[in-house]
Amino acid sequence: MLTAIRPHRPASTEERTGWVMVAPAAILFALFLITPVILTLILSVTNVRLISPNPPSFQGVDNFVRAFTADPTFLASLRNTLIFAVVIVPLQGGLGLGLALLINQKIRGINAFRTIYFVPVVTSMVVLSMLWKFIYQADGLLNSLISTVTFGALSGTDWLNNTSTALPAIIAMSAWAGVGFHMVIWLSGLQTIPESLYEAADLDGCSPWQKFAFVTWPGLRPTFVFVLVTITIAAFSLFIQPLVMTNGGPLNATVTIVLHAVNTGFSKQQTGYAAAISLIFFLLVLVVSLIQRRLTKED
């Protein structure tokens, strides 16, 4: 008797409570995320304009064909976004880990340093981009630093206005701005590794490098997955930095998918086409996320 009743009754209240507790979030998501995404889906197969007296018409896959065949800026944005993601994920992740190892020591005043490293994370990206625009300009701070350090032997370029340095400059600045966050995440991972493992490694006479390879890194595995996923998603959404610093130039060197979608939808008022670009973007990120999930789950 008991076994027949027990799984029954609690399950039904549990079921009901589950729905009730998830309902507020679910309703908000339905209203403010899923609905706009569905609208985007519908818009992407039309020629809707932001401002137009003409009735919208169904265009099938025209917008998608246009993106890949008649819009060099879109192709450039795709290329730049992928380059950005491929470079910044290991760069920012690695620097974050380096900083976490650096900051994970028990000495006086370490909290102050931790706070300083985190400062860019809490500052508005618009403000940071504006400041870096000054730093990167031809007669800006970076170049005076370069010529001072090399005693005038080297002089920098006009970083943001040079097709071969503009994207790297944005990558460097973005890694700088975001690394503090991932430092804290890595740090939290480091602090979950039991001290006893290090002591055991000490007894075995491991070198610092061996301790990192055999104790620290395995212990950081879950953190690694989290860092990988969060940097990747943030990397694909790159928008404010090129908007403020370069507006996608020079010669499409820094245009990103989100920036292109926003420019198309707002400045050019081509809402339907912008929606198609957004949709391609969603699919791309979804596929990349699924691949990452699979890769990180297998071992």
């Binding site: 401002i51 800026t73 420019n263 400045s267 050019k268 008022q269 081509q270």
Partner: peptide, 9 residues
Amino acid sequence: SVISSVFTK
């Protein structure tokens, strides 16, 4: 609106 943004670029 389109001419302006295309010419600018």
